[in-house]
Amino acid sequence: MTHSSAGYAAHDRATCVSGVMRSRRTVRAFRTQPVARELVEEVLKDAAAAPSGGNMQPWRVYVVAGPVKNILSAAVLAAARAGKGLPPAHLPDPLPEVFRGRMADFGARYYASLGIDRSDVEARARQTERNYSFFGAPVGLIFAIDRRLKPHSWIDLGLFAHGVMISAKARGLDTCPQVSFAPFHHAISSVLGMPAEEVTVFGMSLGYGDLDAAVNRAEMPREPPECFAQLLGFPT
């Protein structure tokens, strides 16, 4: 391969990767079309290439479909309605203003796409409950980690999960990462038989997105690099 052709190949790869990453969306309405087990396995093989400190590979993932997914969803929904979830632990109180503003913007866009007034508490609660059925996706994933590990290992789990989402998108699948499962570890572990040292970190819906659903067309803006990155030492 010549230097020129190698350059073109690298450009093509970069264009392909950029296209996949920038087209990934959080999908909250799915078609009923099933996802083949073999396809899920290929996605997991891709994601397992993620880096981890000391190559510990701390990620654990439970992939559910069919009756097992239905049983898990019913258990989590029952726990949620009974108020048996743990308090959310992923957000500080008070939330810094910059993040509070972004969350408020998300909520406005999200509920508007569903035609739900933000003051309609009952409708918002019904929509929240759709999390526990994986928004109708044929496949659900529960991501877990050994609770004894420190934050850098949780970062490794995040890298693995991002690999799942990108590989899925490259294969024509859509995803929705969902921290809403985290408060219901007890119900989840009871259904899945998780060992005592594991803790539920989040869930994820996986399937073929319903592109006609308005909620999947809601635009969620991203900050440009100059708002979150400092590039130092480069020539001007």
Rank of each mutant, 00 (worst) to 15 (best):
M1N: 06
T2C: 05
H3C: 02
S4D: 07
S5H: 13
S5V: 13
S5N: 11
A6K: 06
G7Y: 02
Y8M: 06
Y8V: 08
A9H: 09
R13V: 11
V17N: 01
S18V: 12
G19L: 01
G19P: 00
M21D: 04
R22L: 11
R22Y: 09
R24G: 13
R24T: 14
R25W: 10
R28W: 03
A29H: 06
A29L: 10
F30M: 00
R31Q: 10
T32A: 10
Q33G: 15
R37K: 14
E42Q: 14
V43H: 05
V43C: 11
K45P: 08
A47W: 07
A48Q: 02
A50N: 05
P51I: 08
P51D: 02
S52V: 08
G53P: 02
G54M: 07
P58K: 01
P58R: 05
Y62N: 08
V63G: 00
V64A: 12
V68W: 09
K69N: 00
I71F: 14
L77T: 10
A78G: 09
R81I: 14
K84A: 05
K84V: 03
A89W: 04
D93P: 03
D93W: 09
P94V: 04
R100V: 04
G101Q: 11
M103K: 12
M103C: 02
A104M: 05
A104Q: 06
G107R: 09
Y111T: 10
Y111H: 11
A112D: 12
S113L: 11
S113P: 13
I116T: 09
I116V: 10
R118P: 00
R118Q: 06
D120P: 03
A123C: 07
A123Y: 02
R124V: 00
R126N: 12
R126Y: 06
Q127I: 07
Q127Y: 06
T128F: 15
T128M: 14
R130K: 15
R130F: 15
F134V: 12
G136E: 00
P138Q: 11
G140T: 13
G140M: 05
L141D: 04
L141F: 13
D146Y: 01
R147F: 06
K150T: 08
P151K: 01
P151E: 01
H152Y: 08
S153I: 14
W154P: 00
W154L: 07
I155V: 15
L157G: 13
F160M: 01
H162M: 10
V164E: 09
M165G: 11
I166E: 03
S167Y: 01
S167C: 13
K169I: 08
A170Q: 07
G172F: 04
T175C: 10
P177Q: 13
Q178S: 07
P183H: 03
F184L: 09
H186T: 11
I188V: 00
A196W: 03
E197K: 09
V199C: 11
V201R: 01
G203F: 04
G203N: 05
G203H: 03
G203W: 01
S205W: 02
G207M: 01
Y208S: 12
G209T: 02
G209M: 03
D210V: 04
L211A: 15
L211H: 12
D212K: 10
A213L: 05
A214F: 08
V215A: 07
V215S: 02
N216Y: 08
N216D: 08
N216C: 14
M220C: 14
R222D: 04
E223Y: 15
C227N: 05
Q230A: 15
G233D: 00
G233Q: 06
F234G: 07
